[in-house]
Amino acid sequence: TFELKGKVGKVVKIAEDHYLVEVEGDKWIAYSDEKLSLGDRVMVVDVDGLKLKVKRIP
C-alpha cells in the first residue's frame, strides 16, 4: 500500500464520511481535508492502513 503514495486516481463515490477512489484499477476508501466531487482527479498523499489520504489535483 505504501507504493500508492504519489499515485493519481479519481473519486468514484461520495459517502457520508469518506470517499471511494479508484487508483490503478482498484477502489480504496479515502479521506481528504478538502471537499471533493465525483470525477475529481486526486493524488494519494498518505496511506493509513487500508485508507488513503488524498488531495485534489488539477
Rank of each mutant, 00 (worst) to 15 (best):
G39A: 12
S32I: 15
G6T: 01
V12R: 10
H18C: 09
V47L: 06
L52M: 03
G25P: 04
V42H: 01
V45N: 05
E24L: 03
D48H: 10
L52Y: 02
H18T: 13
V54C: 03
L38E: 08
G25D: 09
L36T: 04
K51G: 13
D17P: 14
D48I: 05
D17G: 09
K10L: 13
K13Q: 13
I57Q: 13
E34G: 11
G25R: 05
M43L: 08
K53S: 11
D33G: 06
A15E: 08
G6L: 01
K51M: 12
A15V: 12
D46Y: 03
E16L: 09
V44G: 01
L38R: 04
K27H: 13
D40T: 07
T1V: 15
W28V: 03
I57D: 14
V45T: 07
H18E: 04
P58R: 04
T1C: 15
K27N: 05
K27W: 10
V44H: 01
V8Q: 14
K10N: 12
D46G: 02
K55G: 13
D40R: 03
R56F: 14
K27I: 08
I14N: 11
K53D: 14
Y31S: 11
R56C: 07
D48R: 04
E24A: 04
L4K: 03
V47C: 04
G25N: 08
D48T: 08
K13F: 10
I14Q: 13
G39T: 07
I29A: 13
K51D: 13
E16K: 08
V42E: 00
D26A: 08
K27F: 12
E22M: 06
L52S: 02
K13C: 08
K13P: 02
D46S: 03
Y31H: 06
D26I: 05
D46E: 05
K7M: 05
I29Q: 13
D33E: 11
L36Y: 09
V23I: 12
V47N: 02
D33W: 07
D46C: 03
L52C: 03
G9W: 00
I14V: 10
L4P: 15
K10F: 09
K27S: 09
F2K: 15
V12N: 10
L38T: 12
L20P: 01
I57V: 06
D40W: 05
V42T: 07
G39N: 08
I14S: 10
K5H: 12
K10H: 12
E3M: 01
I29K: 11
V8W: 04
L50Y: 05
E34Q: 12
L52E: 00
L38S: 05
I29R: 12
L50F: 13
F2Y: 04
L4T: 05
L4C: 04
D46Q: 03
